[in-house]
Amino acid sequence: MSEGTVAGHTLFSDPAVESIVSGLEKALGVPGGGLKRSSFRDNHRVWVEPARLASALKHLREAGMDLLIDLSAADYLGYQDAEHRYGVWYILENTSTGTRIMVRSWADDPSPCLPSAFDIWRGSDWMEREVYDLLGIQFTGHPDLRRILMPDEFAGHPLRKDYPLRGMGERHHFVPLARDES
Protein backbone atom coordinates (compact mmCIF):
# COMPACT_ATOMS: atom_id res chain seq x y z
CA MET A 1 0.00 0.00 0.00
CA SER A 2 1.24 3.45 -0.78
CA GLU A 3 1.82 5.62 2.20
CA GLY A 4 2.74 9.26 2.63
CA THR A 5 2.70 11.97 0.04
CA VAL A 6 5.37 14.42 -1.00
CA ALA A 7 4.47 17.46 -3.11
CA GLY A 8 1.11 16.02 -3.90
CA HIS A 9 2.02 12.52 -5.16
CA THR A 10 2.02 9.19 -3.45
CA LEU A 11 5.18 7.36 -2.54
CA PHE A 12 5.83 3.66 -2.59
CA SER A 13 6.06 2.10 0.83
CA ASP A 14 9.23 0.30 -0.20
CA PRO A 15 12.08 2.88 -0.27
CA ALA A 16 14.11 0.82 -2.76
CA VAL A 17 11.23 0.80 -5.23
CA GLU A 18 10.62 4.49 -4.59
CA SER A 19 14.21 5.42 -5.39
CA ILE A 20 14.13 3.39 -8.61
CA VAL A 21 10.90 4.99 -9.76
CA SER A 22 12.03 8.51 -8.92
CA GLY A 23 15.27 7.82 -10.78
CA LEU A 24 13.21 6.64 -13.73
CA GLU A 25 11.15 9.82 -13.67
CA LYS A 26 14.31 11.91 -13.63
CA ALA A 27 15.77 9.98 -16.56
CA LEU A 28 12.61 10.34 -18.60
CA GLY A 29 12.43 14.03 -17.80
CA VAL A 30 9.02 13.95 -16.18
CA PRO A 31 8.34 15.80 -12.94
CA GLY A 32 8.28 13.87 -9.68
CA GLY A 33 5.10 11.84 -9.55
CA GLY A 34 4.56 12.37 -13.27
CA LEU A 35 4.23 8.65 -13.91
CA LYS A 36 1.08 6.93 -12.75
CA ARG A 37 1.82 4.45 -10.00
CA SER A 38 -0.07 2.00 -7.84
CA SER A 39 0.53 -0.74 -5.33
CA PHE A 40 -1.36 -3.85 -4.37
CA ARG A 41 -0.02 -6.31 -1.77
CA ASP A 42 3.68 -6.54 -2.63
CA ASN A 43 3.29 -5.54 -6.26
CA HIS A 44 4.51 -2.05 -7.13
CA ARG A 45 3.54 -0.79 -10.54
CA VAL A 46 4.46 2.19 -12.60
CA TRP A 47 2.76 3.11 -15.87
CA VAL A 48 4.91 4.23 -18.80
CA GLU A 49 3.42 5.35 -22.07
CA PRO A 50 4.40 3.32 -25.16
CA ALA A 51 6.42 6.17 -26.70
CA ARG A 52 8.70 6.32 -23.66
CA LEU A 53 8.74 2.58 -22.95
CA ALA A 54 11.98 1.75 -24.75
CA SER A 55 14.02 4.41 -22.97
CA ALA A 56 12.36 3.58 -19.65
CA LEU A 57 13.26 -0.11 -19.92
CA LYS A 58 16.80 0.76 -20.98
CA HIS A 59 17.17 3.03 -17.99
CA LEU A 60 15.83 0.39 -15.61
CA ARG A 61 18.25 -2.17 -17.00
CA GLU A 62 21.12 0.22 -16.38
CA ALA A 63 19.76 0.97 -12.93
CA GLY A 64 20.31 -2.66 -11.98
CA MET A 65 17.03 -4.38 -12.84
CA ASP A 66 18.85 -7.18 -14.60
CA LEU A 67 16.28 -10.00 -14.50
CA LEU A 68 13.16 -9.87 -16.64
CA ILE A 69 10.87 -12.21 -14.73
CA ASP A 70 7.81 -11.97 -16.86
CA LEU A 71 6.48 -10.18 -19.87
CA SER A 72 2.92 -10.68 -20.87
CA ALA A 73 -0.26 -8.90 -21.73
CA ALA A 74 -4.00 -9.00 -21.33
CA ASP A 75 -6.95 -8.00 -23.42
CA TYR A 76 -9.14 -5.48 -21.58
CA LEU A 77 -12.00 -5.45 -24.08
CA GLY A 78 -15.05 -4.79 -21.95
CA TYR A 79 -13.16 -4.52 -18.67
CA GLN A 80 -14.61 -1.95 -16.33
CA ASP A 81 -13.08 1.52 -16.71
CA ALA A 82 -10.44 0.30 -19.14
CA GLU A 83 -8.95 3.08 -21.24
CA HIS A 84 -6.87 0.94 -23.56
CA ARG A 85 -7.57 -2.41 -25.11
CA TYR A 86 -4.28 -4.19 -24.35
CA GLY A 87 -2.24 -3.86 -21.20
CA VAL A 88 1.32 -5.14 -21.18
CA TRP A 89 3.42 -5.79 -18.10
CA TYR A 90 7.11 -6.22 -17.53
CA ILE A 91 8.08 -7.67 -14.16
CA LEU A 92 11.67 -6.77 -13.35
CA GLU A 93 13.93 -7.75 -10.53
CA ASN A 94 17.32 -6.70 -9.28
CA THR A 95 19.06 -9.99 -8.56
CA SER A 96 21.51 -8.50 -6.06
CA THR A 97 18.96 -6.68 -3.89
CA GLY A 98 15.78 -8.59 -4.69
CA THR A 99 13.80 -5.44 -5.47
CA ARG A 100 10.91 -6.17 -7.73
CA ILE A 101 8.94 -3.70 -9.84
CA MET A 102 6.27 -3.99 -12.47
CA VAL A 103 6.28 -1.69 -15.49
CA ARG A 104 2.95 -1.34 -17.20
CA SER A 105 2.26 -0.09 -20.67
CA TRP A 106 -0.58 -0.30 -23.15
CA ALA A 107 -1.45 -0.68 -26.79
CA ASP A 108 -4.56 -0.15 -28.83
CA ASP A 109 -6.31 -1.34 -31.94
CA PRO A 110 -6.16 -1.27 -34.96
CA SER A 111 -2.46 -2.12 -34.98
CA PRO A 112 -1.25 -2.70 -31.42
CA CYS A 113 2.46 -2.10 -31.37
CA LEU A 114 5.17 -1.71 -28.75
CA PRO A 115 8.97 -1.47 -28.82
CA SER A 116 10.79 -4.76 -28.35
CA ALA A 117 12.94 -5.40 -25.30
CA PHE A 118 15.00 -7.97 -27.18
CA ASP A 119 18.20 -5.92 -27.02
CA ILE A 120 17.75 -5.18 -23.34
CA TRP A 121 16.91 -8.65 -22.00
CA ARG A 122 17.40 -11.65 -24.25
CA GLY A 123 14.87 -13.47 -22.09
CA SER A 124 12.15 -11.36 -23.69
CA ASP A 125 12.62 -13.20 -26.98
CA TRP A 126 10.06 -15.95 -26.61
CA MET A 127 7.81 -14.01 -24.25
CA GLU A 128 7.28 -11.36 -26.91
CA ARG A 129 6.65 -14.02 -29.51
CA GLU A 130 4.04 -15.58 -27.24
CA VAL A 131 2.28 -12.25 -26.71
CA TYR A 132 2.34 -11.67 -30.45
CA ASP A 133 0.94 -15.13 -31.08
CA LEU A 134 -1.84 -15.18 -28.52
CA LEU A 135 -2.81 -11.51 -28.41
CA GLY A 136 -1.52 -10.06 -31.64
CA ILE A 137 0.63 -7.25 -30.27
CA GLN A 138 3.51 -6.41 -32.57
CA PHE A 139 6.91 -5.74 -31.07
CA THR A 140 8.97 -3.53 -33.35
CA GLY A 141 12.63 -4.39 -33.36
CA HIS A 142 12.18 -8.07 -32.56
CA PRO A 143 14.36 -9.98 -35.04
CA ASP A 144 12.19 -13.08 -35.33
CA LEU A 145 8.60 -12.28 -34.54
CA ARG A 146 6.76 -15.44 -35.62
CA ARG A 147 3.96 -17.48 -34.14
CA ILE A 148 5.27 -19.74 -31.45
CA LEU A 149 2.42 -21.83 -30.05
CA MET A 150 -0.26 -21.83 -32.71
CA PRO A 151 0.25 -23.23 -36.22
CA ASP A 152 1.75 -20.79 -38.69
CA GLU A 153 -1.38 -20.62 -40.82
CA PHE A 154 -3.60 -19.75 -37.89
CA ALA A 155 -5.21 -16.38 -38.41
CA GLY A 156 -6.71 -15.47 -35.04
CA HIS A 157 -5.31 -14.57 -31.66
CA PRO A 158 -6.90 -16.94 -29.17
CA LEU A 159 -6.39 -14.99 -25.95
CA ARG A 160 -8.29 -12.00 -27.26
CA LYS A 161 -11.65 -11.63 -25.62
CA ASP A 162 -13.50 -11.73 -28.91
CA TYR A 163 -12.14 -15.18 -29.68
CA PRO A 164 -14.40 -17.95 -28.33
CA LEU A 165 -13.10 -20.53 -25.87
CA ARG A 166 -14.06 -23.44 -28.11
CA GLY A 167 -12.61 -21.84 -31.19
CA MET A 168 -14.13 -21.28 -34.58
CA GLY A 169 -14.27 -24.94 -35.52
CA GLU A 170 -10.66 -25.37 -36.54
CA ARG A 171 -10.21 -28.39 -34.33
CA HIS A 172 -12.68 -30.37 -36.41
CA HIS A 173 -11.02 -29.82 -39.76
CA PHE A 174 -8.84 -32.81 -40.37
CA VAL A 175 -8.98 -35.81 -42.65
CA PRO A 176 -10.57 -38.80 -40.89
CA LEU A 177 -8.66 -42.03 -41.35
CA ALA A 178 -10.64 -45.23 -41.89
CA ARG A 179 -9.32 -48.59 -40.82
CA ASP A 180 -9.13 -50.14 -44.29
CA GLU A 181 -7.07 -47.36 -45.80
CA SER A 182 -4.49 -47.11 -43.05
Partner: peptide
Protein backbone atom coordinates in the same frame (compact mmCIF):
# COMPACT_ATOMS: atom_id res chain seq x y z
CA UNK B 1 -14.20 -51.59 -41.22
CA UNK B 2 -14.28 -48.94 -43.89
CA UNK B 3 -14.79 -45.92 -41.72
CA UNK B 4 -13.63 -44.69 -38.34
CA UNK B 5 -15.53 -46.42 -35.61
CA UNK B 6 -15.73 -43.47 -33.29
CA UNK B 7 -18.10 -40.55 -33.59
CA UNK B 8 -17.60 -38.51 -36.72
CA UNK B 9 -16.23 -35.00 -36.38
CA UNK B 10 -18.76 -32.46 -35.29
CA UNK B 11 -18.57 -30.75 -38.61
CA UNK B 12 -19.24 -27.08 -38.45
CA UNK B 13 -20.10 -26.03 -41.92
CA UNK B 14 -17.76 -23.15 -42.32
CA UNK B 15 -17.17 -21.13 -45.43
CA UNK B 16 -13.66 -21.05 -46.74
CA UNK B 17 -13.35 -17.47 -45.62
CA UNK B 18 -14.26 -18.41 -42.07
CA UNK B 19 -11.77 -21.23 -41.77
CA UNK B 20 -8.95 -19.83 -39.76
CA UNK B 21 -6.75 -22.88 -40.11
Amino acid sequence: RTRPEGPRPLAMQLDMADQMV
